[in-house]
């Protein structure tokens, strides 16, 4: 089994009486590119900050590169790159000053040439001040700063938030640059499912503070499926099938989102309920994520959609 570089055990966080993260158990093996998914307020940033020792867990623990997050030593931090949410950097510094500042903390690892190449690739000048950069340019500087020390583990908190499609693509290509280096592990939270699909080989899904999935991307893609069953007469208002996430029915049609349900089980259900016809509907990752994390009493915004 490959080495675990990021592990959480029962990681829990309360803000006052509000539960933000509930017993998160994670194991990320070395070399994984892990997409950390969840809706707004799901607990992603809280989890990341606890992993990095910036927040104290209410219960449980986290370990990065074998070191307890609550006591990350400077030597271990040196091996971890971190891109903060919103790319918050010192606004008064120029890129060159920021590079000098960052380099001081990675005296042996800092790759001047790589940093220079990335800045050039992003068409930035080291004389530019951070306060004069756009969101996208700040994101690019953040990434270059995080990658130049060649970290073993890179943690990014929603790095592509607020970036346009072209900048996002450049950003992801920069990220892929790191991925191509052997044995590097990346954990990145994102709302842009297309980005996750493009680079991740593993997904972790948290929903309202709880871990809902931690598996290879392909396994997630294969396990969340939508089935539309048609009935000659009135469709049943509910479906009794194990693994059912959501069920929507109209007069003669039943639409179900299922998790980990095989073809045979669906066929058996269709036979028992007398469905005239059923089909599996292709879903992209975004659809799967939305269905997977939608609340059980989830209603459509426009009710007329359900009118046949």
């Amino acid at each position: 089994m490959s080495e675990i570089v990021l592990e959480t055990k029962g990681l829990t966080k309360y803000y006052g009486g509000k539960l933000a993260l509930d017993h998160l158990d994670l194991q990320i093996p070395r070399g994984s590119i892990c997409g950390f998914l969840g809706r707004n307020g799901a607990g992603k940033t809280t989890a990341i900050k606890m992993m990095l020792g910036l927040l104290h867990p209410t219960a449980g623990s986290a370990a990065l590169l074998g070191c307890d997050s609550a006591a990350l030593t400077p030597a271990v931090r040196q091996r971890i790159g971190y891109v903060t949410e919103g790319h918050r950097l010192f606004r008064w510094m120029s890129i060159a000053k920021l590079e000098r500042f960052q380099r001081a903390f990675f005296p042996e690892q800092w790759d001047d040439r790589f940093f220079g190449d990335m800045i050039e690739y992003f068409e930035l000048s080291t004389k530019q001040k951070i306060k004069h950069l756009s969101n996208g340019q700040r994101a690019q500087v953040s990434l270059a700063l995080a990658l130049a020390p060649n970290p073993e583990l890179l943690i990014m908190d929603d790095p592509t938030l607020g970036l346009d499609a072209a900048i996002r693509r450049q950003f992801l290509e920069g990220m892929i640059e790191l991925i191509t280096r052997q044995g590097r592990t990346v954990l990145f939270s994102s709302h842009i499912l297309a980005d996750v699909e493009r680079v991740a080989d593993r997904v972790v899904v948290v929903d309202r503070g709880r871990l809902r999935a931690d598996c290879p991307l392909e396994a997630f893609r294969a396990s969340v499926r939508k089935v539309i069953a048609k009935f000659s007469d009135t469709a049943p208002s509910e479906a009794q099938i194990e693994g059912l996430l959501h069920c929507r029915h109209s007069k003669k049609q039943l639409e179900m989102t299922l998790v980990d349900v095989g073809d045979a089980e669906v066929a058996e259900w269709a036979r028992q309920t007398g469905a005239e016809h059923y089909e599996f509907v292709e879903m992209n990752l975004e659809d799967q994520f939305i269905e997977f994390t939608a609340p059980p009493n989830h209603r459509r915004l426009f009710q007329w959609e359900e009118v046949e």
């Binding site: 900050k49 990095l52 910036l54 400077p74 971190y82 918050r88 010192f90 990675f106």
Partner: peptide, 12 residues
Amino acid sequence: TRTWSFLLHRSA
């Protein structure tokens, strides 16, 4: 400015 996270994740 929310720069504490960036500052504190130094190898120091």
